[in-house]
């Protein structure tokens, strides 16, 4: 089938942006990433975007595809149900070139919630025990690949204020706060309960919809809100 692909271009030298349009013959089962690679190979080698694993586990190629944040390697052309494909960078972070955005600030933001195990007790000689039930509580949020789709889909972040801690960091916080082995909640709750913390989540569900790993982020944030209310 023939599709019209519009790709956002940004030149850091001139600081100008535009959309370039390409008409391509594609297989409906092609991934959007395949289409972009074909355009890069055949039409314009200067298009810059990130890619790595190409099957949705590394999180390199998060972008806004037809108005929704998606991984380009996870969307098949046929899923879009449109002959027009419009590809933009994920919004709310500084665009560095074409579809590449500044992820440093995103990762720095994640570090605020202390995204690592702060053990409740010293390690025993063998493994720490954890029941299947306790493990299941935070299973969903262990799936995060830090692609940034959620945070950049959230109006509280992209429209308003990049100081907002954001869904991705909440997911990370959830993964540790609800881990029975962790005992480091005080400093995390400090951040979550901040003016730019949890309370600026308005249950809009854009993050849940954008998550390529199908993590129920809004639910995780709800869990955190209730937890914070009880424990602060």
């Amino acid at each position: 089938m023939e599709v019209t692909v519009e790709i956002y271009r940004y030149d850091p030298d001139t600081e100008e942006s535009r959309f370039d349009t390409f008409v391509k013959e594609v297989d409906p089962k092609d991934r959007v990433l395949d289409v972009m690679m074909a355009i890069k190979d055949e039409d314009d080698g200067t298009i810059a975007f990130r890619k790595s694993c190409a099957h949705g586990v590394c999180g390199s190629d998060a972008m806004e595809i037809n108005g929704l944040n998606r991984l380009a390697c996870q969307v098949l052309v046929q899923d879009l149900k449109s002959k027009r494909i419009r590809i933009e960078p994920i919004r709310g972070m500084k665009v560095l070139r074409d579809l590449i955005v500044d992820m440093d600030s995103f990762f720095a933001g994640l570090e605020k919630v202390k995204p690592y195990l702060i053990p409740a007790e010293p390690a025993p000689a063998t493994e720490r025990l954890q029941s299947i039930g306790d493990r299941a509580i935070f299973d969903d949020t262990t799936k995060c690949i830090m692609c940034g789709s959620c945070t950049t889909s959230c109006p509280s972040f992209r429209w308003f204020n990049q100081d907002f801690v954001g869904p991705a960091a909440f997911v990370k916080a959830h993964r540790f706060i609800f881990d029975s082995r962790d005992g480091g909640n005080e400093p995390r709750l400090e951040i979550l309960d901040d003016k730019d913390g949890l309370w600026r989540c308005h249950s809009i569900f854009n993050c849940t919809d954008a998550c390529p790993r199908e993590i129920h982020i809004t639910k995780a944030i709800g869990d955190l809100k209730r937890y914070t209310v009880v424990h602060r």
Binding site: L198, W199, V229
Partner: peptide, 11 residues
């Protein structure tokens, strides 16, 4: 319970 954001949210 502090008066940061959690109590306001609950209220």
């Amino acid at each position: 319970m502090s008066s940061r954001g959690s109590s306001a949210w609950l209220l």
